[in-house]
Design a protein around this nucleic acid. Sequence first.
DNA 1: CTATATGGGAATGCGACGGC
DNA 2: GCCGTCGCATTCCCATATAG
Length: 397
Amino acid sequence: MSEVKIVPELRFSEFSEAWSKKQVGELGNFFSGGTPTSTNKNLYEGNIPFIGSGKIGSDSVDQFITEDALNGSSAKLVETGDLLYALYGATSGEVAISKLNGAINQAVLCIRTQENKIFLKDWLIKNKPRILKTYLQGGQGNLSAKIVKNLKLCIPSKEEQQKIADFLSLVDKKIEQLTEKHRLLTDYKKGVMQQVFSQQIRFKDDNGNDYPEWDRKSIAKLGAIIGGGTPETTKAEYWNGDIQWFTPTEIKQKYMGFSVRSISNEGLKKSSAKILPKGTLLLTTRATIADIAISTRECATNQGFQSIVVNEENNNEFVYYWIIQNRKLFVRKASGSTFPEISKKEIEKIFGLFPCVEEQQKIANFLTEIDQKINQAWSILEQTKAFKKGLLQKMFV
DNA sequence: CTATATGGGAATGCGACGGC
DNA sequence: GCCGTCGCATTCCCATATAG
């Protein structure tokens, strides 16, 4: 590689000098903590927040240790504003500025640097994928203080660090605000659902007249309830066909059109899987209870579902929201030793109050509108996150 | 002695599949 | 169609070995 001046692609115009190559280890002091003997419960009845690798950026924790626990173990105190780095487990490579005064365990590395810590934080965020890829090999890879200290980076003057940190912090702040907005909308929806289903809010028809009282009826009256199945996995000809085939873990959003795996007509015939029309409520009833989505195309499911093909006296979108609101009714009925499951029979016996189909339609439209607002907020949030990611790529070397 | 690395294992979550 | 057994994968925490 030819000798070129080390500068980032995107830079504030008042800076022109080259960035200098350093090792992270040169930038400050490093220490990680420890875990007080977990068999001694007394040690965990104190008031010092105990920060594990999953909690480095949180403003609250679940565990609190005592002074004795702190002194009798390798646990170390950190302060609000300290730069914390997660070394082990699924959170490896996460980095955050501590929002707590507390003690850290051995999975957390505290970095006290004389450089700008927000600059360093964002540099670590930018390089997380690369760090994990390089150092987290094998089943249970862990990072270590040594690995972090040996990372090489390019770093500008304090002034330029500050400028970059301020700018990125602004973007972070925006992301926080958007996250908050999304959270508020989600809370609002929760409140509205509560009021709608408890009939504190009632809709009127287009002529301003009241709709009839709600009817108490069982789920069985809402439509056909249809189970699913799994074709033999050893027979290749049953798989990778034209029929979308869902498993409970895939049910994450309101509308589902494409599944991870698909089955063939042959597979459909030779198994308990059933064809479900577009608009079917895909309801999980095994392992994960009462997760629900609306199919946007013809599909099938495995045996972890009891799907509802809603009839014409009811509105599928309304039933979708009704089930979300009444999730507890399902969870309560679930039984099983290894994992919970609700049988078709039990589902058919669940009762609830349902308005006439016209009012169902109005309620569904109303809630769908709120959902759209929530999705919009989410999408702006995602765009802003992507924007930050782009900045990270360009503003660092 | 302290700091760090590392393997074990609990907790959790789930899928495949066969018996009834 | 329902239900239970077996076992796999993931995640996280902990105890202990080892290095410094």
